[in-house]
Nucleic acid binder design. Structure first.
Lengths: 222, 222
DNA sequence: TACTATCGGAAAGGTACACTATCCAAATGC
DNA sequence: GCATTTGGATAGTGTACCTTTCCGATAGTA
């Protein structure tokens, strides 16, 4: 197919596709003449992945580029590759971190489980955690870290389901990597949404009785 | 204190504080003369909250404004207020959604638990879920929705800890609301970070043996 | 009472990002 | 034959989030 059909099938405007081509988010099509190129299903698939990373994952163009090049890299082991894509799709804050929080974050990671070959100091995850703890501290929530135990417990269940899901559907190594990217990005958003629901439900259960009754009454009036 | 000290204590540049004042993210100080104002601890606290919402929560200025005005609103019940701040701090995607995914999302919410007074159709949470399912579908992950069961299970644990945490430390109604905002925003980031760790650990356990051994060997060489 | 630093407030400027628009000669498709 | 579409390059747009600059007034210090 040519760029017009790629655009129609993906819902992405032609100029935007050209922009993505320029930015290296999409491999060039096969040139059939100096100014004609053909694209195939793999381009469509890649384009949809790009849009998912941008729209749902809210990644920047350059993060998407990093993630894709990690996906496409072929000279690494699967484990290393997964680490690289994880780094690419994890937003690392650029805020200055206080030492106390950095130490707390690293201690948490160390205690969480020995991760061989995991470079704690320069991982986005540890900086993220440090930023969270640092922000919590500055807001007077210095006990926030104690909550992390529950997070670990919850994430154990979810991560297990994630891996299970990836293993069930993936048919090749590249498939595993791509599924992990998709599952991670979509899962992040899904987790957040489900947590909001759980909060709303808990709020309704504990304190919303009168409000719910009022709402039900309003509903009844119609 | 005057603006200079507020800046020094918060780490936010003076011009940025002025900008936040203009944007209504920070209440004006008490004017002691036509061009002198005093700020107190509440301003410092609010300023730190704003920075946490922006830096950790990655909220836009206008979302922060919405969240703050929901926090400050006084004429609503706690339950309604919590719903409003939740809406303000939940990023709702602006992508077009396919009907199938919208239906699946709404069915999920309905089945998840009866939320009285919860307007499914115009909640950011349901749009978020629909966007996730829609993106999954377009990427060929049409079974992604089946994973949500595990997410619910994980979130039950986490949401319970969240509520517990808020109830334990809050001393007033306003405190509950603010703690909920902070806990939600920081918790989102924390969840994501912990999930990354869990994935890394699982990857190391299942496939990283050889890579870990290689890394350990490299470590040993030093 | 000089003098310097800092202040509040307004307006204009800047930077980064993610596209969009315009143009061109060449190729396609009816 | 001829309107449409193409790849490719360059320039422009819109939004978001600050910064810079300026002003006359005030605060703190000598």
């Amino acid at each position: 197919m040519r760029i017009g059909e790629l655009s129609k099938r993906s819902g992405v405007p032609v100029p935007t596709i050209k922009y993505y081509l320029r930015e290296g988010l999409l491999p060039a099509g096969v040139l059939t003449s100096p100014n004609q190129a053909h694209y195939d299903e793999s381009h469509l698939r890649r384009l949809r992945l790009v849009r998912a990373l941008i729209d749902v994952g809210e990644l920047s163009i350059s993060s998407v580029r990093d993630a894709l090049s990690a996906i496409d890299a072929s000279d690494e082991s699967l484990h290393v590759k997964l680490g690289q894509v994880q780094e690419a799709i994890s937003r690392a804050p650029s805020t200055p971190l206080d030492d106390e929080s950095v130490r707390e974050a690293e201690a948490f990671i160390a205690q969480y489980g020995p991760l061989e070959g995991y470079d704690i100091e320069c991982s986005g995850v540890s900086r993220m955690l440090a930023a969270v703890l640092s922000a919590a501290r500055s807001l007077g929530h210095d006990k926030f870290g104690e909550n992390l135990g529950a997070y670990v417990e919850g994430m154990r269940i979810i991560a297990e389901a994630d891996i299970e899901y990836v293993m069930r559907r993936a048919t090749s190594v590249d498939d595993v990597v791509e599924s992990m990217v998709v599952g991670t990005i979509l899962g992040d958003a899904a987790m957040i949404a489900v947590r909001r629901l759980a909060h709303a439900q808990e709020s309704a259960k504990r304190i919303g009785d009168s409000a719910a009754r009022a709402s039900a009454a309003r509903e009844g009036e119609r």
